[in-house]
Every structure is written in structure tokens, then in C-alpha cells.
């Protein structure tokens, strides 16, 4: 049947396809214009990164260096199927369950995570810092890395809430009753010293069934993906902290690729700018593993003490290929 289906469709299309304006020359012209525009806006860096990211992902050069272990096998992952969701409603995650837990599974992830960030620090010539206080006025207190202060990969729980009113900053929420476990570590930074950029690194492993593939457009001012997507993007947008205030532009560069085992890989670079300059950049790579789980690795600019560059650097310390390398290194353990 199916061969005849294709032939029958082709026959019908031959009769009903309207004329097209598609032209290779016109598209080449548009492509050149788009490239020039992006280079003009971001000093050439962003377009360069986008092309390099796309190139690296598409050309099968990844993972780098041949040091990455094989991707996790097809282990039986506990399934957390999403509840029925209203397509017209917004959803957000909030932490639940209180205490961070260290389990055998998180210990296995932690071992790979330590190896990964230690290698990344060595490669980039950066010093490692750890955040020791989430409740600090600046949202974090960074100190030089030490075993005593290091915060390991932990198991946490997230609950899914539906937005039923309020504002994007202060939404009214309704619990859906859907709760998932996930593994997370993010209190780590690479710094090249005073006056230089620092990059916060994080890793997250999401359980099977608990996310939509692809990027979720943020619901408003906070640049967070709409749940249950693992990463925000990919339509550029503008937000204001309050009506009448200066706008902030959020620029996404999303690139799809494939891992060595055929896994889907999504890389999203986010740059936030106000009227005068770009002031934040982050790069997120999501590896959608064949066992149904997802690994999210992020490099996000952070400033603390004297670790502040005069202007926003052109790229994160680790590029998409390197972040994918880290994601691939995370072992396949049950996420439950």
C-alpha cells in the first residue's frame, strides 16, 4: 500500500501545486544579508559561533578528542508520562520535596561531572569556584574551589504548576499534582581571574517522559522555558521589567544536531541586551538520550567580586561541542 500511497500523492501534487517564488539566488542573497546583519549587531562573534556550532554539530566532529565514553545503553528508565495539559495555558516548574538527596545514581553522575569540569578548567586555564550560599543578597557567594565546599550532584523534585492568572513575575498557580525527580548540580564556576569573565556551569538530568523535546518559548519577562521544555527559545522577543521601562531584547540562536548514537542534540545560545549593550550570554546544550532521559548542560556568564569583564565577551568559556562532550559523558543511570 505505502508505495502506491507515495505515487498517488505525487500524482495529485503534480496537478494541484501552485507556482512558487522559491529561487536559490534569492535565498543566497537573503542568507548573505542575514549573516551581515547578525555580524553587524554582534561584532561578528555571534554569527561565527552560530556557524561553528552548526558546523560542529552537523559535520559529525563531535564528540571532541575521542575521550568520551559511549552513550548510555538502553537501560530501562522509569517513565514519568506528562499529564494532560491545556495548550492555551502556561506551565512552570517549582521545587518540591525539600531536601537535596545524594543517591547511588547521583554519585555516578557526580563522578563524571567532576571529571568533566576539572578537565574543562584545565583546558581553559580557568580557576574553579563554588557557590556556598544561595541566599546571599546577590543570589550566590562564590569562593575558590575546595573539597569541603564543593556541592555534589543531588536528586531534587520538581512539581508542575499551571498558570491561572497574575503576572509573569508573580503568577497565580494551580498545582497539577505532577511531580518528577531530577538530578542537578550548578554551584560551580570557571574564572580566568579578576577583570575576566566567569562562567557558571550546570548539569541537569531529566527523567523519561517528563519533558517536551525542543525549546519552549518563555512566557514572559523571566527568561525561563515554558514547562515542560528543557530549554528556552527559539523566537527572539522583547520584555520590560515594568510597563514603560526600557526594553530588553532576548536573541536566540538555536541549532539542531545529532549525537554519535543518533540522539537529538539542541544547542541554544541566548544573548540579552538592553538599549546600550548586550549584558548576558548563556549557552545550553540538551542531549535527548535514546533511553528517554535528557541531559542539559549550561554555561552561563556570572559576575562576582572582581570577576567582571569590562564588556560582554563574545563567547562562553565552553562552546557547544564541549558542552555536548560533557553531556555525553554523563552515565546512564535510572533517573527516579
Amino acid at each position: 500500500m505505502t508505495r502506491e500511497l507515495a505515487r498517488a500523492l505525487d500524482e495529485e501534487f503534480a496537478a494541484l501545486t501552485p507556482p512558487s517564488d522559491l529561487s536559490g539566488t534569492a535565498i543566497v542573497q537573503k542568507g548573505r544579508t542575514a549573516r551581515r546583519r547578525r555580524r553587524g549587531a554582534f561584532g561578528g562573534a555571534l554569527a561565527g559561533v552560530a556557524v561553528l556550532v552548526a558546523g560542529a554539530l552537523l559535520s559529525g566532529l563531535l564528540p571532541l578528542g575521542g575521550t568520551t565514553p559511549p552513550p548510555p545503553g538502553e537501560i530501562a528508565q522509569p517513565d514519568y508520562p506528562l499529564p494532560a495539559m491545556d495548550p492555551d495555558a502556561g506551565y512552570v516548574w517549582h521545587r518540591s520535596g525539600g531536601v537535596d538527596q545524594v543517591t547511588d545514581a547521583t554519585a555516578a553522575i557526580d563522578e563524571a561531572w567532576r571529571a568533566a569540569f576539572t578537565a574543562a578548567a584545565a583546558e581553559t586555564g580557568a580557576e574553579l569556584y563554588v557557590n556556598i550560599d544561595d541566599s546571599a543578597p546577590t543570589g550566590a557567594e562564590w569562593v575558590p574551589f575546595s573539597e569541603a565546599e564543593y556541592r555534589r550532584v543531588v536528586r531534587r523534585e520538581n512539581a508542575l504548576f499551571r498558570i491561572v492568572g497574575g503576572t509573569t513575575w508573580n503568577p497565580e498557580l494551580e498545582a497539577t499534582g505532577y511531580v518528577i525527580p531530577y538530578f542537578w548540580a550548578g554551584d560551580l564556576a570557571l574564572s580566568r581571574g579578576p577583570g575576566q569573565q566567569a562562567d557558571r556551569l550546570s548539569v541537569q538530568v531529566l527523567p523519561k517522559g517528563s519533558f517536551h523535546p525542543g525549546a519552549g518559548q518563555p512566557l514572559g519577562a523571566p527568561v525561563e522555558p515554558s514547562a515542560p521544555y528543557a530549554v528556552a527559545g527559539c523566537e527572539d522577543y522583547t520584555y520590560r521589567l515594568e510597563p514603560g521601562s526600557s526594553p530588553f531584547e532576548v536573541d536566540y540562536t538555536c541549532t539542531d544536531g545529532a549525537g554519535p548514537g543518533g540522539e537529538r542534540v539542541l544547542a541554544v545560545e541566548t544573548v540579552i541586551a538592553n538599549e546600550t549593550s548586550a549584558f548576558h550570554r548563556e549557552l545550553t546544550v540538551v542531549l535527548y538520550r535514546l533511553d528517554g532521559t535528557a541531559v542539559v548542560v549550561e554555561d552561563s556568564f556570572v559576575s562576582f567580586d572582581a570577576h567582571r569583564p569590562g564588556s560582554l565577551p563574545d563567547a562562553t568559556a565552553l562552546d557547544a561541542a564541549r558542552l555536548l562532550d560533557i553531556a555525553l559523558a554523563m552515565p546512564g543511570v535510572p533517573v527516579a
Binding site: I27, K30, A34, V51, G55, L58, S59, G60
Partner: peptide, 8 residues
Amino acid sequence: YRAWPRVR
């Protein structure tokens, strides 16, 4: 087009 040089 932007990714063309690297596309297989």
C-alpha cells in the same frame, strides 16, 4: 545556507 559549508 548559513550552515551550508559544514552540511553533509
